[in-house]
Design a protein around this nucleic acid. Structure first.
Lengths: 152, 152
DNA sequence: CTTGACTACGTAGTTGACTACGGGTTTAAG
DNA sequence: CTTAAACCCGTAGTCAACTACGTAGTCAAG
C-alpha cells in the first residue's frame, strides 16, 4: 500500500487529458494487468469505452477505485464484500457499512481465537519435543497419532 | 475430534476380523466417504486390496491414520505438509518433525500479527463511525477511499 | 513501413480441499 | 430371488482470486 497517488499524474509518457493505459493503471495500483481485467469482468472496476480505433484510457477515478479495493483487501474483506462496499460508498449508507465492518471484525476475532489455540498447541508440542521428555519417539508425532499430549 | 477409537471395535454390523467398510471408516473418522477416496488418490491413505469379488476392508490402522490427518489439520497443517508428517512418522525423524512444527508456528504467529493489525484497524474505524466524528460521509468509506483514518 | 512493445479479449489453467455424478458391482435383508 | 442400500471408480464441478495463453489489433520509434 505504498503506491502513492501522485506517482502517475506526472507520469512519463502520459498526459493528464488522455488518461492512463491499462498497463499504467496496473503499475500505479501495484497489480497485474490481468488482475484489472479480472476486476472488470467481476464488475469491481468499470470498463471505459474506447475512442473508435483506439485504446481504452483510464482516469484517476479508476485508480482510486482500484486503491480502494486493495485497501479493503488488506482489511480482510473478500472481493464479493468489496463489491458491496463499493455500492455502499456510492451513497449515504453509513449504518450498513458499519454493520459489515462489525461482521468482519467478528470473523477476524474468531479467526484470532482459533489461531491462538493452534499457537499454544504447537508451542506446547515443540517445547515438549525440546525437553525430550519421552525416550522413545517424537512427542509431536505421538500426539498426532494418539490425540493427546505427551505431557498429559 | 471427539471420535473415540472404541466406537468401531464393537460396531454393529462388523466383526473385527473382516474390518470396516469405507462407509464405516468414514463415519468413524467423521468425514465423508468421498474425502477418504480423495485422500487415497492423494496418497494420504492406502487403498487396501480387496479379496477377489468383494469389497475393500479397512482396519484400525487406516482409521488411526485418518485421525492423524484430521488432528494435524486442526493444528493448521495443509494436506501436503501432512503427507510429509506421515512420512516422518514412519521412522525416527524427531528433528525434522520439530523443524516443520516450528516453521508452522512461525507462520501461525505471522498470521496472528496480521490479524491483530486488521483487528485494530477495523476497531478504530468502527468506533470512529460510532462517534460520528465527521459530519459528512461514513468514516469507513472515507478511510478506504483516501487511504487514511479520519482521526488522523 | 517495419519492428517491437503494448493492448484487447476470451478461454483455460492454477491451488487447496473437497463434493457430486453416473453407471456398474456387491452385499444384506426379506 | 429380488430389491434397496452401500460400494467402486473415474471424471468433472466447486470456490476464491487470480494467472496464463493465444490471436489479433494498435501505437510509437526509426
Amino acid at each position: 500500500m505504498k503506491t502513492s497517488k501522485a506517482s502517475f499524474t506526472k507520469s512519463e509518457t502520459m498526459n493528464s487529458k488522455t488518461g492512463m493505459t491499462i498497463g499504467q493503471l496496473a503499475s500505479a495500483g501495484g497489480v497485474n494487468v490481468e488482475t484489472i481485467r479480472y476486476y472488470q469482468r467481476e464488475k469491481l472496476l468499470p470498463t471505459p469505452q474506447r475512442r473508435p480505433g483506439s485504446i481504452r484510457r483510464y482516469s484517476e477515478e479508476e485508480l482510486n477505485r482500484l486503491l480502494f479495493i486493495k485497501r479493503a483487501q488488506v482489511l480482510g474483506f473478500s472481493l464479493t464484500e468489496i463489491t458491496l462496499l463499493l455500492q455502499l460508498a456510492e451513497g449515504e449508507h453509513c449504518a450498513e457499512t458499519q454493520a459489515l465492518a462489525e461482521k468482519k471484525l467478528d470473523m477476524v476475532e474468531q479467526k484470532l481465537a482459533d489461531l491462538l489455540a493452534i499457537e499454544s498447541a504447537l508451542t506446547k508440542l515443540i517445547s515438549s519435543c525440546r525437553k525430550e521428555e519421552n525416550g522413545c519417539g517424537c512427542p509431536i508425532i505421538y500426539s498426532l497419532v494418539n490425540g493427546k499430549n505427551t505431557t498429559s
